[in-house]
Design a protein around this nucleic acid. Sequence first.
DNA 1: CAGCGTCTGTTCGAAAACGCACCCTTACGG
DNA 2: CCGTAAGGGTGCGTTTTCGAACAGACGCTG
Lengths: 256, 256
Amino acid sequence: MLTILHINTNDLKEITLLSPDTVLGKNRLLAALPRKDQQRLVSVSECVDIHFADTIYEPDQKIRHVYFPCDSFVSYVKSLEKRERVELGMIGSEGMLGATLALGVPTAPFYAIVQGMGSAWRMKADTFRKELEAIPALRRRVNRYLFVLLNQFAQNATCMRFHLVEQRLARWLLMTQDRAHSETLHLTQEFLSSMLGVRRVGVSNAASSLHERKLISYSRGEIHILDRQGLIAAACPCYEIDNHYYDSIMNKASAA
Amino acid sequence: MLTILHINTNDLKEITLLSPDTVLGKNRLLAALPRKDQQRLVSVSECVDIHFADTIYEPDQKIRHVYFPCDSFVSYVKSLEKRERVELGMIGSEGMLGATLALGVPTAPFYAIVQGMGSAWRMKADTFRKELEAIPALRRRVNRYLFVLLNQFAQNATCMRFHLVEQRLARWLLMTQDRAHSETLHLTQEFLSSMLGVRRVGVSNAASSLHERKLISYSRGEIHILDRQGLIAAACPCYEIDNHYYDSIMNKASAA
DNA sequence: CAGCGTCTGTTCGAAAACGCACCCTTACGG
DNA sequence: CCGTAAGGGTGCGTTTTCGAACAGACGCTG
């Protein structure tokens, strides 16, 4: 239908096999909009694949597109010096990239780096701005999402300050699994260390500990989550606080 | 006039002597609006005094009023456990409290605790919402401010993660001085420790060091800043990055 | 199969911050 | 004048993380 006709395909075999509803439903932010609005938005979007380690935004650079991840996910990263680099938040199908455009600033505040490859709906920045004006439901939704993002940043800041590397690693793995929809994750310790803002050794120790406790297994960048409940117990409460907050804010949004 | 836009926060005395609508000019967010809008906003606001240690907002509680500080200033504070409490950002005359209302969420995300007593323009939450609709310039301004806030949170998070207590203390004092418009600050170490999220001993050591370096003097909660330039050098770059960012975003806003 | 790059595990001392506790000084009110 | 409380300094051992380095293990490529 409309939706499919307007897709700009690079290689979208997967996508084209799915019904429009399914594809749309993959992004929770869009999925909560009225069907009509969803169709309109898809008609001005394209479905793209994004790849591991792609840099979607750089700080102070113009935002060209906004993204609504389906099964991909992306991290906002702040970098001061070489070693002073840390993840601020993680965006998957529950959110979107470039929401700050709604605040009237055309540039990106942080790095946005792809963590999990997959597909995302992509829209030009100008288009997004226009659709924000045209679709009140979208505007409301994006605004609420910005509120959630602010909270995630705050939670993450406090977590970084007070919680141990092991707890933070557990939390990070859980968040990643939620967005990757898979029990296997491809992540090197080197990479994890830059996400958590610690040395690789710190990750190594924390991972060993989680491994000893039979919560995960890993080998050469392949991490398996063996015991999700145990991992939740090993993580700091920030994981569940975050999830809870998202639900409480975004669900109220759809009710309103 | 334009001069008002370029006020250095350090010498606000000038302003109080200046003109009749100086009261408004004391809040930089409002001061950047067209004169007409300023007058309208004042007509639906009241000027109130807020006092040290007042709790303006609590997390998940409804926001009743928004505040535009004149010479007062307030901290956003996140608190997980008893000891796990830290300042997320500081709001003075350069910003406002309750900006998140513009995102359509009626509740406050964090504690807001008064650091420096003084006056502020106060507006009912409903009024603020209506004025946001009615005054596009206000909406643009508030949105841009939210963008800045998001950045401040990010900067602060990274700073907390990587920088030493002494650097962070120096930065905090500078930020406070900017908002207090005074060289004397009343702050106990106990209080500072909960702002920086460290032990009081940590503050004590850091303060001793700054004192030895003749950058500050202090006694029983009275802190004097002796050498502002030296303090800037002792602080992490986050201080200047923050200021720079504010200017670059908010000044563009007034141009637009 | 040799070579090389990547990923991981481990070690070391040092730095920073932690929790806790004790003691001294100053301010203030009775 | 003195008792009390608040503010601040110091010491101690512990924990966590840091920076740097080295060694083993795996997998790809030539």
